[in-house]
């Protein structure tokens, strides 16, 4: 028991070597560290299990026919060709729709908007909130919009792209704003001091400097759209598509929807196809994310 009067300096004190286990190595902290590691390892092991499971299930079906054949009623003849093409179409159109709008919105909010103005504060709050709205709500929105403008056949490429665009717009806006914010203000001031207007400065200095950041953010946002299925379900993309999509008004299905379809079938063969198509999807996503990371590391300037 240490009383308050004890251990005034000068009094003979206990040796440092107490003979006890160091406090960092006692059972409680050791168990704690093991538990922390386990948390992370369980997450990593789940990921590995998922990948191994999908490769084992789908490996046998992963081959050329998967890429070249159309869906069929028998798993032995079925492939994902229209779904792959459909995904490319929808994501391509989504990119064209979203990136310019997203970048423009971010430029407005970062470089021009009066941050105190209520309008801009509302937009700001909106962008934050939209990023957390469940994706299926965007499907409901797109469905209502198509009904409003009187489109009867809602399963069209442009409809799907519209839903996905609204879904990833906040992601692109947020990423672009961060990229713009990372450009040091000396660059802006330097340009403005030379007599350039705000817009010239943005267009010639700020935007070029933030291209890598914008590209990285856009690719990651598009990869999210590529894996998304819920909003497209609402547009009826689950229909049986046995033709290649060929335009904005063409009917379509996408890879995630095709996987959903095959997963729900009773025959084991379709489950293997679902797994094989998942390999394609995961491969594409890894490729896109790898590209994003490459651009980030390769081009990002350290100011």
């Amino acid at each position: 028991m240490i009383s308050l009067q004890d251990s005034l300096a000068g009094a003979p004190t206990m040796p440092l070597k107490t003979g006890e286990t160091p406090r960092e190595r006692r059972p409680a902290p050791m168990i704690f560290l093991v538990v922390l590691w386990l948390s992370l390892l369980i997450a990593i092991l789940s990921l590995l299990t998922l990948i191994v499971n999908i490769v084992l299930e789908g490996g046998s079906r992963f081959g050329l026919p998967l890429f070249t054949e159309y869906p069929a009623s028998s798993p032995d003849r079925a492939g994902a060709r229209p779904a792959i093409l459909g995904s490319i179409w929808v994501i391509g159109v989504t990119a064209v729709l979203t990136i310019p709008v997203g970048v423009a919105a971010a430029v407005h909010l970062e470089e021009f908007a009066d941050k105190k103005h209520w309008f801009n504060r509302v937009i700001e709050l909106n962008v934050q909130n939209l990023a957390a709205v469940p994706s299926i709500i965007y499907g409901l929105l797109a469905l209502a919009f198509l009904a409003l403008i009187g489109v009867r056949d809602k399963n069209i490429v442009i409809g799907g792209a519209l839903a996905l665009s609204l879904l990833i717009l906040p992601v692109i806006i947020i990423a672009t704003r961060e990229a713009i914010r990372a450009v040091p203000s000396e660059i802006r001031d330097g340009s403005l001091a030379l007599g350039a207007t705000r817009w010239q400065t943005t267009w010639r200095q700020v935007l070029p400097a933030s291209v890598p950041g914008i590209a990285t953010g856009s690719i990651i946002a598009l990869s999210r759209a590529l894996g998304e299925a819920a909003p497209l379900l609402l547009l009826g993309a689950l229909v049986f598509v046995s033709f290649d999509p060929n335009g904005l008004l063409s009917g379509f299905t996408t890879l995630p929807i095709q996987i959903f379809n095959w997963t729900g079938r009773p025959q084991e063969g379709f489950h293997e196809l679902a797994a094989a198509a998942s390999i394609i999807l995961l491969g594409l996503l890894l490729l896109m994310n790898g590209l994003a990371i490459y651009i980030r590391n390769r081009y990002q300037k350290r100011w």
Partner: peptide
């Protein structure tokens, strides 16, 4: 020294 607990 060896056996000295840095926390002590």
């Amino acid at each position: 020294g060896k056996d000295v607990d840095p926390i002590e």
